[in-house]
């Protein structure tokens, strides 16, 4: 019984983790068809922002929930203005340019912080289920991911901002004719996407510790979650995060975490082959 509870909690945590690190990429890909391969580095920068702020005595919750998104959002804004905005509509070129950016950011962070691991202790103590010790902070991650998904859904579905954003993605000319500047909408969307990546990095920082190269671990998982999810931002991310999280954890419990990850990647291959337009190209067609 205790064991079952733990498995369920770990699965939930994995789903939350995948949803959290994919949210920023999903916004940028789902709404603008732009693949940001520097996404992992945005997450990494969010983590560094949180740890740097925490080391300077700032409250860690404030650091991860406010400082990280703001810092990475600003970086995203700069990147959009300097690089991405020239490449809209050239999908492969965007991928290459952002891959270059990712290498550049890794190099830059290595120069500034050095190639050593830094970490910050989790602010919530663990607790006991039967004989098993569980990380209390995992519950916080699950809560943040759930709130984030709800907030994204509400904003996209029920606010004027969300309406304009979705409108721009469907028909930029029409939105322009109605008096909104598509270029500004793209810029803000990319900035919000980057800010969400920063938030993910900040929230994950106490659990994982940080190296300049840590982004590589995030970008692959976020990438397959978003692409196999398909065009619908929230339904796609949630459905694939749930699927991959469950498979990963069940295989991990049955064998080793490495096999869990491999099972997840192999499942992604199969899904891509069967549904090249993503899960939401097949099911949940009219969702957000």
């Amino acid at each position: 019984m205790d064991f079952a509870a733990i498995v369920v909690l770990e699965i939930l945590y994995m789903i939350a983790f995948l949803a959290l690190i994919s949210a920023g990429l999903a916004i940028v890909f789902g709404m603008m068809r732009v693949i940001n391969l520097a996404h992992g580095e945005f997450v990494m920068l969010g983590g560094y922002a949180t740890i740097a702020a925490a080391k300077h005595g700032i409250n860690i919750y404030f650091a991860m929930l406010v400082i990280s998104p703001v810092v990475v959002g600003i970086i995203g804004l700069i990147v959009e203005r300097l690089i991405v905005r020239f490449l809209y509509g050239r999908m492969i070129d965007v991928m290459l340019a952002t891959w270059g950016l990712s290498l550049l950011l890794i190099g830059l962070v290595t120069l500034i912080f050095g190639n050593t691991a830094v970490s910050v202790p989790a602010p919530i103590p663990g607790y006991q289920i039967g004989h098993y010790q569980m990380g209390g902070y995992n519950l916080f991650v699950i809560a943040v991911a759930a709130l984030l998904m709800c907030a994204m859904w509400l904003v996209l579905r029920y606010t004027r901002v969300g309406l304009v954003a979705r409108g721009t993605m469907q028909g930029a000319e029409v939105v322009a004719a109605l008096g909104y500047n598509p270029s500004t909408v793209y810029m803000l969307t990319f900035t919000v996407g980057a800010a969400l990546s920063g938030l993910a990095g900040g929230v994950m920082a106490p659990l994982t510790g940080l190296l300049p190269s840590v982004g590589g671990a995030y970008v692959a998982k976020a990438f397959i979650t978003v692409i196999t999810g398909g065009a619908a931002v929230i339904a796609g991310t949630l459905s694939t995060a749930a699927l991959f999280g469950t498979v990963d954890q069940i295989v991990s419990f049955a064998s080793t975490p490495v096999l869990g990850e491999i099972a997840m990647l192999a499942l992604a291959l199969v899904l891509l082959r069967l549904m090249p337009q993503g899960v939401t190209g097949q099911f949940f067609r009219n969702s957000t």
Partner: peptide
Amino acid sequence: TIDNSLVLGAILVLVVLLIP
């Protein structure tokens, strides 16, 4: 002094932007 991936990354970004 200069990190390798910094230089490679900068080259890739500039080439994609300027001489695609």
